[in-house]
Amino acid sequence: MTAFANRRLRVLLAKLGMDTHTIGVTVIAHALRDAGFEVIFTGLKQTAEMVANTAVQEDVDVIGVSSLSAAHMKHLPKLAEFLRQKGAGDKLLIAGGVVPLEDIAQLERAGVQKIFTMGTETKVIVDYLQTWWAAKLAAEQSGG
């Protein structure tokens, strides 16, 4: 569709709470940029509500949270709740970092749609987002 020649996936990358480890999120940001995505970074020490507001203002498709401080069970469900409250529940919420496997099911129930655990290659994340984006665009086209 030529009318949508400028359609481009927008991703918000966020760090919540007192978690100040930035290397992982920086590596991801560069990988997503190189895949042709537009990445917006919130910076550090954000609250769930700040991230949700930012996601609305930037009209991103995806919110990716980097969590390395073991506070994921506290922040992620709250973020999912704020996104729903602010009418942004249709955006894809994903997370990555130090997340024990036994927490994943509960986070998924809370609305985190995908969790990438330690050691995930950036290519895996890029592939996941590309597949998700292609499906979203296809659904838009067929839905009119």
Partner: peptide, 21 residues
């Protein structure tokens, strides 16, 4: 934006997040 991939890392608002609420 990157002239190579067309992607971008937009970081300006990192300095403005005090106004996020």
């Amino acid at each position: 934006s990157s002239p190579f991939s067309g992607g971008a890392v937009l970081g300006d608002r990192v300095r403005m997040q005090t106004h996020a609420l």
